[in-house]
Write a protein that binds this DNA or RNA. Structure first.
Length: 856
RNA sequence: GCCGGGAUGGCGGAAUUGGUAGACGCACGGGACUCAAAAUCCCGCGUUGGCGACAACGUGGGGGUUCGAUUCCCCCUCCCGGCACCA
């Protein structure tokens, strides 16, 4: 055994061993339970960044841990290879996006292999390859035929100087990033996927995802945004037809003082007819980016159309305004404005001097009524109709947040909104007013209750080159014809020159000129490509059937799916994870797979930050992990990454600290070296031990238990590592080299090698082969804690006086509460607080932990 | 703006179900070894007062519940992620 820790050599050796033995090749024929561990595949941006190192190490730790626990593990890897950055790089470097992408994949693959991941590389996929995208083109045509994909116009960012569509990312402060021109909104025809048809199932499915973080499920619930409300129609004065709005607060209808429509609304278009000023205002609204964040933070602006509508219940005439804060894409693109009870309406009304009418008053609870309500309604989730929160008339939360025994606390802080100035509805609470007003609207045929989703259909058309071609042929005679399966894939030409403005396939007749599959006449291909989320929405299934050339997936998908553990960045909490869930259901419904949900357990890794913001290529603040691997080795890089923070927290990158990880591995190596040099010894099994060695064994087996729990349940790798460090620190204090001590040391060291091997697999494999030459770490399995070694005779109690720590007390394991209380009252650090005029009020004993003496 | 999350020593973090705040590591200070340096090893390390025993204060800010709050509740500040064409 070498005296120094030769990380380069042992890492190379281990990686070669795994490759030539196909250690991580996944098989469907095992009789062990399967464990499919998937990390979000990387975009091949050029070089590995710290976020990748973190992501793939987490996945690898979980994979290797489960392999040791006796699972049949599959951990695949691939490339999310289509996307905008390739086009930008191609323009900048005067190359083709395909060439750039393939070169990046090669380089990053080398880097990933250097990390020592237990990946089955035979299953590698790249989404830009025709063998991959052929199948999503096939699925597209199937869904198109089923009506789940359809065409409609949608708004995009239009750069009038370059004459091109821009991504939101390419719009900076309302201007095109290249041209600097003011961006306009433009409506163009695009393909949409009917994700709203699955809204209810996508929402309900969340309740069954016990292995997902609550945080992510909440975000998805809010994104899907099921709301209970009313549609309300306002007859337009002097014209036929009604203005329809959607509201979740029909109880405030009597407080509506104006209505507001989005600039894109039909009524807005109508009003501009003889009003050039209004037309100009609408044109102004149509400038700027389409991103919702920009719309929502823009200064509120509006203009009176001069039109009026009639209030459906009180007959008042309300002015119709065009307002830039009304979203065209939600509800009806029009709102009834209740300035007294909506902050946005309030701000707008103040600015334009519109009237404000209060119709809700907050009153304290009637306790009796509340308790009666509690009894009838205490079970079940909120239905959206509930109590106001007492602060400005938010939507009722309706969810009783506590168990019944804590009701007083909740009750003390709550008020309930009651209708006032509302005629016949005065005195009604939210739910009563909601029902009464909805009933009256329905009787007048001017509205009804309606549930509404915030979720919109998914626009998948992109006017860009480097993506999967949309498999549609436009025929003057036959209309939109999906490309027949036998003509797939529609190949994207890879040898192209980018001009930075127009997609190469949009000006390439050899691509778009074709014949209609139906009538045989002249026709043109669709030249838009698919959103890259399309590829990443089903890749998890393709890994199972990576080499299948007869179908999108085969039976192997039903063996591996669902993914047991998915690991990836929190930034994907909504879009990618929702689309992947949607695709899983689509694939289920065309009969390809059986499972309802794609990912059983989800670990959302926090961002790797540098200087306070996300490390990303676009921000140019990445730290290259290659230098880290070259200087210290992959094990040090992995150890440091796992040690620096728990995986779900964001990690602020700091160069210092790597040194500490490296030092620890060197110490570990040295400890094993010094032990092995003294000759072979069998790990301790039985015999009398000194108190010191007994204590060490106790700590060893507690550590085995803790590390297993940290890996398997808590996913807190940082505390797993620190507990092993503590164990190694304890071991270092014992210097004796007698046979018994050496046998315990052997037991500690070989277990440490096993415990750390998911995190630092190379060094552990090397150390284990020195410590146990007859065995191999890959056959050893996960160690089990020895219960006998963990029996303790005494328990250390913490003693507090009035909640403040005053001393420690060692108590026999059998001592009962009375004995402990008596002992505590004999301690000087307790008695000294028993002054004249004070007495012991009570003593709280928390078993095996703490005693608190309350003196007053 | 809306949705979700976060804030603990000089720094990264620990405290798992309301029960010892600061584990483990980094940085720093002191010492040993060395001709010297590096490496390594040992000791110290929240703040204030005290020679010390010890005491008071202390988990972004303000209030509350509790014998006891980093943890639960209410309000506020700042930071991070997402907001549908970045992936």
């Amino acid at each position: 055994m070498q005296q120094q820790y030769p990380f380069k050599q042992i890492e190379q050796q281990a990686q070669q061993y795994w490759e030539s033995n196909k250690t991580f090749a996944a098989s469907e024929t095992s009789d062990k339970p399967k464990y499919y561990c998937l990390s979000m595949f990387p975009y091949p941006s050029g070089r590995l960044h710290m976020g990748h190192v973190r992501n793939y190490t987490i996945g690898d730790v979980l994979s290797r841990f489960h392999q040791m626990k006796g699972y049949n593990v599959m951990q695949p890897m691939g490339w999310d290879a289509f996307g905008l950055p390739a086009e930008n790089a191609a323009i900048a470097n005067k190359t083709a996006p395909a060439k750039w992408t393939y070169e990046n994949i090669e380089h990053m693959k080398t880097q990933l292999k250097q990390l020592g991941l237990g990946v089955d590389w035979d299953r590698e996929i790249a989404t830009c390859k025709p063998e991959y995208y052929k199948w999503e083109q096939w699925l597209f045509t199937e869904l198109f035929k089923k009506g789940l994909i359809y065409k409609k116009t949608a708004t995009v960012n239009w750069d009038p100087v370059d004459g091109t569509v821009l991504a939101n990312e390419q719009v900076i402060d309302g201007r095109g990033w290249r041209s600097g021109a003011l961006i306009e909104k433009r409506d163009i025809p695009q393909y949409f996927m009917k994700i709203t048809a699955y809204a209810e199932e996508l929402l309900n499915g969340l309740d069954k995802l016990d292995g997902w973080p609550e945080q992510v499920k909440t975000m998805q619930r809010n994104w899907i945004g099921k709301s209970y409300g009313c549609e309300v129609e306002f007859p337009i004065v002097g014209q036929s037809g009604n203005l329809k709005v959607y509201t979740t607060r029909p109880d405030t209808l009597m407080g509506a003082t104006y209505v507001a429509v989005a600039a894109e609304h039909a009524l807005a278009t109508l009003a501009t007819k003889d009003n050039p000023k209004l037309a100009e205002f609408i044109a102004e609204c149509k400038r700027g980016s389409v991103a919702e964040a920009d719309v929502a933070t823009a200064e509120k602006k509006g203009m009176d159309t001069g039109l009026f509508v009639t209030h459906p219940l009180n007959g008042e005439q309300l002015p119709v305004w065009i307002a830039n804060y009304v979203l065209a894409s939600y509800g009806e693109g029009a709102v009834m404005a209740v300035p007294a009870h909506d902050e946005r309406d309030f701000e707008f009304a103040k600015k334009y001097n519109l009237s404000i009418k209060q119709v809700i008053e907050f009153k304290s609870f009637d306790k009796k009524e509340f308790l009666a309500k509690l009894i009838t309604e205490q079970s079940g989730r909120g239905d959206g109709y509930g109590y106001g929160d007492g602060e400005g008339g938010g939507h009722g939360d309706g969810i009783f947040p506590y168990t019944v025994d804590r009701w007083q606390e909740w009750y003390a802080n709550k008020t309930v909104g009651i209708c006032v100035n509302s005629g016949k509805y005065d005195g009604l609470n939210f739910e009563q007013a909601f029902n009464a007003i909805a009933a009256d609207l329905e009787a007048k045929n001017l509205g009804k209750k309606r549930t509404q989703f915030r979720l919109r259909d998914w626009g998948v058309s992109r006017q860009r080159y480097w993506g999967c071609p949309i498999p549609i042929i436009h025929c003057a005679k036959c209309g939109e014809v999906p490309v027949p399966a036998e003509q797939l894939p529609v190949r994207l030409p890879e040898d192209v020159t980018m001009d930075g403005v127009v997609s190469p396939i949009k000006k390439d007749p050899s691509f778009y000129e074709t014949t209609c599959p139906t009538c045989g006449g002249k026709a043109t291909r669709e030249t838009d490509t698919l959103d890259t989320f399309f590829e990443s929405s089903w890749y998890f299934a393709r890994y199972a059937s990576f080499d299948c050339d007869t179908a999108m997936v085969d039976e192997r998908a039903n063996y591996w799916l669902p993914v047991d553990q998915y690991v990836g960045g929190i930034e994907h909490a909504i879009l990618h994870l929702l689309y992947a869930r949607f695709f899983n259901k689509l694939m289920r419904d065309v009969g390809l797979i059986k499972n309802d949900e794609p990912f059983t357990n989800l670990l959302t890794q926090g961002m790797v930050l540098k200087d306070g913001s996300k490390m990303s290529k676009s921000k140019g603040n990445t730290v290259d992990p290659q230098a880290l691997i070259d200087t210290y080795g992959a094990d040090t890089a992995r150890l440091f990454m796992m040690f620096a923070a728990p995986p779900d927290q964001s990690l602020e990158w700091a160069d210092s600290g790597v040194e500490g990880a490296s030092r620890f591995l060197k110490r570990l190596w040295k400890a094993c070296y010094e032990h092995v040099e003294l000759g072979a010894v069998i790990a301790y099994t039985q015999g009398e031990l000194s108190a010191e060695l007994k204590q060490l064994r106790l700590q060893l087996h507690q550590t085995i238990e803790k590390v297993g729990d940290d890996y398997g349940r808590r996913h807190n790798f940082n505390t797993a590592i620190s507990s092993v460090m503590e164990l190694m620190n304890a071991l270092a204090k014992i210097e004796a080299t007698d046979e018994t001590t050496r046998s315990v040391r052997q037991e500690v060291l070989q277990n440490v090698a096993l415990l750390l091997s998911p995190i630092v697999p190379h060094i552990c494999q090397a150390l284990f082969s020195e410590l146990c030459p007859a065995n191999h770490i890959l056959r050893a399995g996960w160690p089990e804690a020895n219960k006998d070694a963990m029996v303790q005779d005494t328990v250390e109690y913490v003693v507090q006086v009035n909640g403040k720590l005053r001393g420690n007390l060692s108590v026999s394991r059998e001592a009962d509460k009375t004995t402990i209380e008596k002992m505590v009252l004999e301690q000087t650090y307790v008695t000294k607080f028993l002054l004249e005029g004070t007495s012991v009020r009570k003593i709280i004993v928390v078993p095996n932990k703490l005693v608190n003496v309350v003196i007053a």
